[in-house]
Amino acid sequence: MTFTIDDIRRALDATPPIISPGGIISRGTLAGQCGAVDYTIHLGWDLLIANLCDRTWGAFNITLLRYIRKLEAQGIDIDPILESAQLEDNHWRWLDKTLHYRGNCYTWFFLVAENYPQAACLVYHPKASVVGAGDIFYIEYIAAAPWNRENVLAERVFKGVGPKLLDHVICYAKDDLKLQAGFSLHSLPKAVAFYEKIGMKAFPQYDKEGLRFFEWVDSESQAKGQSNANP
């Protein structure tokens, strides 16, 4: 019997949305609207968490877009609102991606708090650095839950979940995957400023489909790699 993605999604929707403690590789606290909240970092392929990303993140974005349309109906200019809204990844379907990206070269990470996914990241490894010698990892997808981003609907629930998850990914890649301390990615247009801010370097020759290519490599690791390559 062959199951479709819709069949799998319906089965997951009928399952209690209780995230398993299995796969937890780290714990910490987040600063939230109502004080400190515990979070966990989950490693590995997880259909339930991916489906929760689709359900909960998608529901918030629908509510957000309805609110923006309501503002438009009231005669408010929504062009600046849409320009600042971080909806470029609204079409992403995390369950589809989880079913598609499988194998030892792909690793999934989820940041969970209050029994909901607050951020997600998929990386590919190893990836040759374009800056220096050695292998790093490549971020296929990374995103924070939409309620953790600036929006006109409500104050952000948690701040900094994307960078916090990325820090854990970098540490895992270095300590467990034994890669150089660095990563590359193709940035969504509205995320370019963030990657420039954290010191990533653009390499236009690797841009694709309107997405700018960035790479960051720890300066100490880069110097060590170049030294090893040129004894």
Rank of each mutant, 00 (worst) to 15 (best):
N230H: 11
K159V: 15
T56R: 12
D175C: 04
L188A: 15
V157K: 15
P80H: 06
N90W: 04
F60P: 00
D6T: 06
K97D: 13
G132W: 09
I170Y: 01
K97P: 02
T29P: 02
L64W: 01
N51R: 15
H168L: 02
V217F: 06
Y106S: 03
N115H: 06
G225M: 10
R9Q: 13
I62K: 04
D135L: 09
A145C: 11
H91Y: 12
P80G: 11
L12T: 05
Q226D: 14
L82W: 14
F194Q: 09
I142E: 12
G160W: 02
I170T: 13
G103R: 10
Y195P: 04
I62H: 01
W57G: 02
D218W: 03
L177P: 03
K197F: 05
V37C: 10
R93A: 08
L111G: 00
L82Q: 13
T98M: 13
A113P: 00
L153K: 05
L185D: 06
A14Y: 12
T15S: 10
Q222K: 15
A229T: 06
P204E: 10
R27Q: 14
V152F: 07
G35L: 07
I62V: 15
N151W: 00
G199C: 11
H125G: 01
A191E: 03
S227V: 09
F137C: 11
Y172T: 01
D46I: 08
A128K: 14
V217H: 05
C34W: 07
F213T: 03
K97G: 09
L48T: 05
V157W: 03
L12F: 04
E155P: 01
L82F: 11
I81D: 05
Q86Y: 13
A223S: 11
Y101G: 05
K190C: 03
Y39W: 05
W57V: 02
L87Q: 10
A191F: 02
P80W: 07
F194V: 11
S20H: 10
K164N: 07
I62E: 12
H100I: 12
A191N: 02
I68D: 00
Y141R: 13
A59F: 00
P189T: 06
F158A: 04
W94Q: 07
G58L: 10
E220K: 15
A143T: 12
